[in-house]
Amino acid sequence: MQRVNMIMAESPGLITICLLGYLLSAECTVFLDHENANKILNRPKRYNSGKLEEFVQGNLERECMEEKCSFEEAREVFENTERTTEFWKQYVDGDQCESNPCLNGGSCKDDINSYECWCPFGFEGKNCELDVTCNIKNGRCEQFCKNSADNKVVCSCTEGYRLAENQKSCEPAVPFPCGRVSVSQTSKLTRAETVFPDVDYVNSTEAETILDNITQSTQSFNDFTRVVGGEDAKPGQFPWQVVLNGKVDAFCGGSIVNEKWIVTAAHCVETGVKITVVAGEHNIEETEHTEQKRNVIRIIPHHNYNAAINKYNHDIALLELDEPLVLNSYVTPICIADKEYTNIFLKFGSGYVSGWGRVFHKGRSALVLQYLRVPLVDRATCLRSTKFTIYNNMFCAGFHEGGRDSCQGDSGGPHVTEVEGTSFLTGIISWGEECAMKGKYGIYTKVSRYVNWIKEKTKLT
């Protein structure tokens, strides 16, 4: 034993070699072989497995989906700052455009905790909710729209109204504003409101030439003092309507412009014939205590009207009353817009006519005020429907199939267009061939041609 100890002390290297040989010859039971080890760690190889990531292109799944990435790591994937920024906006807080917040056709661009709407022409605001041009839906104005110097929408209202708090709607500024039905039992019968379409306001006024200088022999019209197929109006439903009495009662109609003036057809009036105007009328054979009678003290036909040349060209006249009318729910003026808007309103496509005229061709006159909704007829169809001249200051309205029309005794009465609950004068009943005849239409004086003249002559002093 002493000898062994001496050998170990003198030859430590020998001992180490012996131990190493023993270990190498022993069977290893701690580690699995290569094949079995792979069965336990069965993990798919990654895209760049075996390579240094710093030297390969980034992978979106590896960089940002398996674990949260930084902007720089995302930049490695896209290799483009702009594309990385677009991805980053949604990656950080989701897609803010998912709810489609942009209105009126706006395009949404996502941002971090926010979004941006790219608005089409005519709109602005956070969600493109603000109209900035009158060309689109009248700028959301209830009545009139004008573009300011910086191309912003400025709404306005006709006389007797003021802008509401929203700067879009119009509200009454006087007790009985024009064009409004205020009798409670008839307010439910107000005709369907007309909503502004998209309009090209630059070209809204037709490029028409008034044929002022045409000389033409007097034409022989049949029954051209021209509501057939209409309905009984309720008291106060058309408070701007008046009836004219002269040699015979209810020979023509008219509309209240203001307390002192009536507008009617020029062919209705004769110099030297006494005319009485009755406002607030409903049943011409009954006294309903809503009527107001006034005498006409002055007749002003349009300066281009000449019955000797043509009885229905420039067929418009103004009547001055001896005493002002007292405005109330049964006696209310009709609204008159400017030339541009009167023309736009007419193009809405349908209007209402009213009167006490004959209820059928050569038949009896109506006792109760009649009204009828009539569609506008395109000019080409209008011209083809008659052998008589249709001037540019006239328009056609009615039904091709016949059966409904204005008729004798309705002449001078109103053709009105309702705009968001307020009625505007767009025409004056003038003439036609018979009444409600198939293929024939009622012919009306186009008020847009005469609004400046009306307003100039009827100013209240």
Rank of each mutant, 00 (worst) to 15 (best):
V416L: 05
E420L: 11
A164I: 06
D198A: 12
N283D: 12
K45R: 09
Q167W: 08
A164H: 12
C170I: 01
D111F: 11
K68E: 04
L24C: 13
C108P: 03
D95S: 12
V227M: 11
H400V: 11
D223M: 12
M394A: 07
S25Q: 13
E116A: 13
D249R: 09
R449Y: 15
E231I: 09
S182T: 15
V56M: 06
P197A: 14
L319I: 07
Y47T: 09
Y115N: 04
T225S: 08
Y91R: 05
V199C: 07
W261M: 02
L23H: 05
E288I: 06
S406R: 11
Q408M: 12
F121T: 14
R191T: 11
E79H: 08
G398V: 04
S156I: 05
F360I: 15
V228W: 14
V278W: 06
F348T: 15
K51H: 14
E72R: 04
A279L: 01
T381S: 05
T29M: 13
Q90T: 09
K339T: 10
C268Q: 00
V277R: 00
G253C: 11
K168C: 05
S217V: 12
Q237I: 08
W88L: 04
L23R: 02
N48M: 01
C170R: 01
K339S: 15
S99R: 11
L14A: 12
H302R: 03
S448R: 02
C141N: 01
N213E: 09
L318K: 00
Y450L: 00
T16K: 10
Y444A: 03
R226D: 11
N328T: 09
C335F: 00
T215Y: 07
G230F: 15
T461P: 14
L19T: 09
V296E: 00
K126I: 14
E270I: 09
N151F: 09
G253T: 15
I284R: 13
R43P: 01
E418W: 06
D150V: 09
V359L: 11
F31S: 11
C396Y: 01
N222D: 15
P301Q: 12
G106T: 03
K260R: 12
L376A: 04
N222M: 14
D410Q: 15
A173K: 10
I454L: 08
N151E: 09
I443T: 06
V181F: 06
A173T: 13
K126R: 13
V228K: 10
T271S: 11
A436S: 10
C155S: 00
I336A: 01
R379L: 15
W453R: 00
L211I: 15
K387Y: 06
C97G: 03
P324S: 06
Q167S: 14
P175I: 06
I429M: 15
D338Q: 05
E116D: 13
G125E: 03
F399W: 15
C396G: 01
C155T: 00
K51T: 08
